[in-house]
Design a protein around this nucleic acid. Structure first.
Lengths: 202, 202
DNA sequence: CAAAGAAATGAATAGTGGTTCACTTCTTCA
DNA sequence: TGAAGAAGTGAACCACTATTCATTTCTTTG
């Protein structure tokens, strides 16, 4: 054995992998998962098609990593606002939903890809998991709120799931087209969030 | 010209078309749109692959017709309960949502295909239209309810869209798998519907 | 520097499935 | 019945891409 990978080489490899991931991410950002092909990703990352397969076992795996990276970031933010100390569950819910909507509208192309765009069934499973994860967070908040009497008695997970649905459905319409009116979006966000809040309280 | 199609031939053609549509519908019913291929449809309908193209310009057109037929039927039912005379808007809303959920759970494979299954982008547009159509109906009801003071003041279309989202999201989970517990479904339905109702009143 | 191992290359392969079209079969009617 | 037009046939074609692999290029180290 006269050759062994050095930290230097490893670093290069890691960088290549990162470049590939980023190239894929940007493609999704610009045109959604449907437009992502291995050769386009390779081209963007300045490598040959075959090279992609030295880093990802299949297209599905690449897509999944892209999806995970993007959604996990969002989930973190949601978790954060869900747990802001010094606020009541209801207040936290309101903040969380409002900021979720705000981010979705701001980065709506990506949000559309992550929330609603058709992808092959493999990713679908992952997507469902994430929706459940969001709901899980909301459910925690609702449970808390119910306990402290701030929210009415209800089935937390069902309400939480309904909220995920209400939010995404309400946002998908304004998400896909490019006509973006900040005032309208603001109003829309307020309306949806209040809809959800009303269903929780009392 | 010594040949002209007779009513007899026309009838046969109409029947063939119907058979194709039905074959396609059944495929979707059993395995979703992803499993629908032209040759499978042809096989089911007992005709050659090429024959399909004498009735439908493309796969997309065939899919669209299948989708339309199925969804339009559901939309009609929704419209009906939305307009039952002798009931208040709130009562009608409650009935409509409950029955919608009931039907979705009962025919959940189809419902999943129509509501949530990924299809190519062409159908996506159609699907959005239908979701909007449902929302439209709900919005009418909400407007009425607001006017007669039964529902609180709100943006009807936004609330309506949120309801569509809450209902479908809540149902998709229980829709895809085959584990069907009638009591749980019953409870779930009640919970989601009440969530929506709470958001509408007062 | 040279040998060996690792990584990169990209043209070729392969699977999929929609669509076409030259040909056959059927229907009508003079 | 036979000519003309319509419908049906299904094998071949085509487009698209994921994936492979023989070959080349790069890195390391004795």
């Amino acid at each position: 054995m006269v050759y062994r990978t050095t930290p230097n080489t490893e670093a290069k490899k890691a960088e290549s992998r990162e470049r590939l991931l980023e190239a894929g991410f940007n493609l999704v950002l610009e045109a959604g998962f449907t437009q992502l092909t291995i050769s386009k990703v390779a081209q963007r990352a300045q490598v040959a098609t075959g090279t992609v397969y030295r880093y990802f076992a299949s297209k599905g795996e690449l897509c999944e990593e892209i999806f995970l990276k993007a959604t996990q970031a969002e989930l973190e933010k949601v978790k954060n606002t869900c747990q802001t100390p010094g606020k009541t569950p209801l207040e936290r819910m309101q903040t969380t939903l409002t900021e979720f909507a705000y981010r979705a509208i701001k980065g709506r192309r990506l949000a559309y890809a992550l929330i609603a765009e058709p992808v092959d069934s493999m990713l679908d499973e992952t997507r469902l998991q994430f929706r459940r994860a969001y709901a899980e967070e909301f459910a925690k908040l609702i449970r808390e709120g119910v306990l402290c009497g701030e929210l009415r008695n209800q089935h937390p997970m069902t309400s939480a799931t309904a909220i995920v649905g209400a939010m995404t459905e309400g946002l998908v319409g304004p998400l896909s087209p490019d006509n973006y009116d900040p005032i309208e979006s603001q109003q829309l966000t307020t309306n949806i969030v209040e809809f959800c809040i009303r269903a929780l309280v009392r």
